[in-house]
């Protein structure tokens, strides 16, 4: 019988930390950093035209 958790299942460790199942393994659930430099680059309409 396959006891593999569902993807994005969560569990709380004894110390209170949270883990998420990513489909293959449990990993710590981290906060997203709010860094404007992370935003994707892109071309605006008209940037490719003279």
């Amino acid at each position: 019988m396959d006891d593999k958790p569902q993807i994005n299942a969560v569990r709380q460790l004894e110390n209170g930390d949270l883990e998420r199942f990513n489909g293959e393994a449990w990993e710590p659930y981290l906060d997203i950093e709010h860094d404007p430099g992370d935003w994707p680059l892109g071309l605006a309409r008209g940037d490719d035209r003279p």
């Binding site: 993807i7 994005n8 990513n22 997203i32 992370d38």
Partner: peptide, 13 residues
């Protein structure tokens, strides 16, 4: 995604 996510699934999780 910068440091926000390591994959599409990660972003949508």
């Amino acid at each position: 995604f910068g440091t926000a996510a390591t994959s599409v699934d990660d972003l949508l999780s």
